[in-house]
Nucleic acid binder design. Structure first.
Lengths: 244, 244
DNA sequence: CGGTCGTTTGATTACGATCAAACGAAGTGG
DNA sequence: CCACTTCGTTTGATCGTAATCAAACGACCG
């Protein structure tokens, strides 16, 4: 046993921010059949078109979901960190409509999709908690549609830095408003629908304006109020506080 | 009684394309407490920031979800038609993170959120069917992120016309590849992240290329193969055929 | 100490935005 | 029935943001 606590501790903590779980529910989650797998940086967990037979819960490391367009451009759809189920939809939808790739060396708990489905159906509280999780996922996608659809380059990048800051904090991966970006500027660009060259210029400008400072890939937000405004950022869509 | 069939017939038909429901489940759905409301064109069903106490199932007409950015731009997030639950997430998430507005005069069945939540928890098959519905919703949002993030104007508009064509067909609102757009070009523009002027030019070009023809707001797709290619369209993300 | 990958900077281009105005259809009131 | 208004569509001219092309720089690694 490599884990003093269960592999699902992070997940349970996350779910309980939103839904109350009974002891029996917690124990049922912890009893989920699973195997621990580790993925080297750059590995794919799921590829567009796969029929995955299992679901991955990230334990350490970072991952993203993305799609490739007909002419080869990549759009990153979301970033994921420890404690998150990456492809929950695969437990119910049969065929993957996008790919999932890890940035860094990553450990994950791999759960058979039927086990997860049965648990959700058998224990309504767990089903609800996971449903809420997918609803929040969808809320983040909606905000990203707005980000790439209607914000200029400066706001897009600022918005993403704000989102990452809050999510990293919630996952205990940030030191206040300082965190290390797990991805390259090219990947940032693919998340906000810009070119890497332009993302670089925007980051430089945000630093010159005194909103952030940078050291390698470590971002420090120097002025939360102003970057929040620059990014037109309102954290409501993250639903970090749904006390139902 | 204005309806020879129940108000939920369209919803049930839609859900059963993906999930098998027992007779008891169907009857439980039809027994949901609800009231029929009609909304005049342009009315809001939900406003960003509301705490809605009920969920709307569209019976006739069209609606969209949207957000407004800090500097007043609008991004439409999705279009909705008869048989769709518009704000399912409100039955579980407390606070609306976007607005819902109808285009045309619209009738809807308004269901108290607690009734819907209790039904989903009490009848796992219904909970699963609705969960799948929200997962498909999320899949469409992902495709829209790609559309506005990484496709040029011609592909964006073509892609949206493809999506609308298939969804209208599935909802029995299209005559083959001919359907009437329920929205203005300005609203199309807000859905694809362009200006109305430019959408107009793209539509004109698509017509000149022989991919579509237009008469008022009626769109006829003349060459499905070519517009599909122009829009980089792959219907898999709609999950119209998940036979679980 | 090369070699690779990611970051940074500069010069030019292009796609879609913006500004402006005419046109057309549907609805209203005299 | 016909002015008149309103809203949406269409077309033209110009502008600006971000893309593209190109190259140097810097960090990390074997």
């Amino acid at each position: 046993m490599q884990f003093s606590t269960s592999a699902f501790a992070g997940l349970i903590r996350r779910l309980e921010r939103r839904t109350r779980l009974a002891d029996a529910d917690r124990r049922a989650l912890e009893a989920l059949p699973h195997s621990i797998r580790s993925f080297p940086a750059g590995a794919h967990i799921v590829r567009d078109g796969d029929r995955p037979e299992s679901c991955c819960l990230l334990l350490t490391g970072f991952a993203c979901r993305y799609k490739i367009t007909g002419d080869g451009a990549r759009q990153i759809l979301s970033f994921h960190m420890a404690g998150e189920f990456i492809d929950l939809q695969n437990s119910l939808l049969g065929i993957a409509d996008h790919s999932v790739q890890v940035f860094t060396e990553t450990e994950a708990a791999v759960v058979p999709r039927h086990a997860l489905r049965d648990l959700s159906l058998g224990r309504p509280a767990i089903g609800e908690a996971l449903w809420i999780d997918t609803l929040i996922d969808a809320s983040i996608f909606r905000e990203w549609v707005v980000n790439v659809g209607r914000r200029d380059s400066r706001a897009r990048v600022a918005h993403l830095l704000c989102e990452l800051s809050l999510r990293m904090q919630a996952a205990d991966l940030a030191d206040g408003h300082r965190y290390e970006l797990p991805m390259t500027q090219e990947q940032l660009a693919d998340a906000v629908g810009l070119t890497p060259v332009h993302v670089n210029r925007v980051l430089k400008q945000l630093a010159e304006e005194g909103l952030i400072s940078r050291d390698r890939r470590t971002i420090t937000i120097l002025d939360w109020g102003r970057i929040r405004e620059a990014g037109d950022f309102n954290e409501r869509y993250l639903h970090h506080d749904v006390a139902a």
